[in-house]
């Protein structure tokens, strides 16, 4: 299984000279299974560059959305496979309590917000209300579960043989918790992250910024470190960087995180272009 980060920024694309190292594109992660199964996690602005690298060898694309906030779907209309006649594309994402995924996505992919309607895309598109629980795509086992973030939002755990990753880009497990971390079974997202080889997790705020943003659906870096430690992950990739955090700020925050405690896992600041490979 190979994982590549195409967009690591949270909330709003943030291009510019001060974000070139960690990147300014919003959430998008590529997952390739050993058998060629091709997954894309979220369709932030990073998906445009990913789409441009794809050749005809990719017969089937599975795009798994965590939720439908704009920074996670804004790149959708610029994802090359959607524009290719006959290309098989499956989009998975959470329905709301009253609308299915198609109706929710069509609100963005239709005028006046976007000139092309969802139904007019030339690819062979199938939309799936993502099932909560386990399902399989090719050789990959997917587990989807609702997590704490405003509106219907899922996190994903992806397993291939004995290797697993978890993707929780927008997640505020500390919301409302009097003492974080409390009991594991009362912690949002815990089962998804438990013991994974690689956890990609929301780390939007510095500790001092969090009190002003309680309930916005994101984590402070100390929360993320505590969550990763409690879940027993092997590697943590910080993700969904705040648009106001320049490369220099992120360097400082990561260094502070490394100094804050004896980390039991490898701490990796999420940077566009970073790639990780597991298994044979």
């Amino acid at each position: 299984m190979r994982i590549t980060l195409w967009g690591t920024r949270g909330s709003l694309a943030t291009p510019g000279p001060e974000t070139v190292r960690y990147g300014g594109n919003t959430s998008c992660v590529e997952v390739r299974g050993a058998d060629g199964t091709f997954l894309v996690l979220d369709a932030g602005t990073g998906i445009r560059r990913l789409g441009a690298t794809l050749g005809p060898e990719v017969e089937r694309v599975h795009l798994l959305l965590t939720h439908l906030h704009m920074d996670h779907i804004q790149g959708l209309g610029f994802f090359k496979p959607l524009d290719q006649p006959g290309q098989e594309v499956h989009i998975w994402g959470p329905p709301s309590t009253t609308l299915d995924l198609r109706a929710r996505l069509a609100r963005y992919l239709s005028p006046p917000l976007f000139p092309v309607r969802l139904r007019d895309l030339p690819c062979r598109l199938t939309l799936h209300d993502v099932p909560l629980g386990d399902f399989e795509i090719g050789g990959l086992k997917i587990t989807a579960a609702l997590v704490c973030h405003p509106g219907p939002t899922v996190g994903y755990r992806i397993t291939e043989n004995a290797m697993s990753i978890a993707y929780l880009p927008d997640h505020e497990p500390a919301l409302g918790a009097h003492h974080f971390l409390g009991e594991a079974d009362w912690t949002s997202g815990f089962d998804l992250a438990r013991g994974v080889d690689l956890l990609i997790h929301d780390a939007q705020y510095a500790a001092a910024e969090y009190p002003e943003h309680v309930g916005w659906g994101h984590s402070a870096i100390p929360h993320t470190l505590g969550f990763a430690a409690a879940a027993g992950v092997k590697r943590l990739v910080t993700f969904h960087h705040d648009p106001g955090h320049t490369d220099l700020v992120l360097d400082r925050l990561i260094e502070e995180a490394r100094q804050s405690s004896d980390l039991l896992f490898q701490l990796i600041p999420g940077a566009e272009g970073a790639s990780f490979e597991f298994g044979g």
Partner: peptide, 18 residues
């Protein structure tokens, strides 16, 4: 013990504040 559903977690958290 398996993790509770997030709606149950949030319900407990809300209750703990009310």
């Amino acid at each position: 013990m398996p993790q509770k559903d997030v709606e149950v977690i949030l319900m407990r958290q809300l209750a703990s504040y009310l």
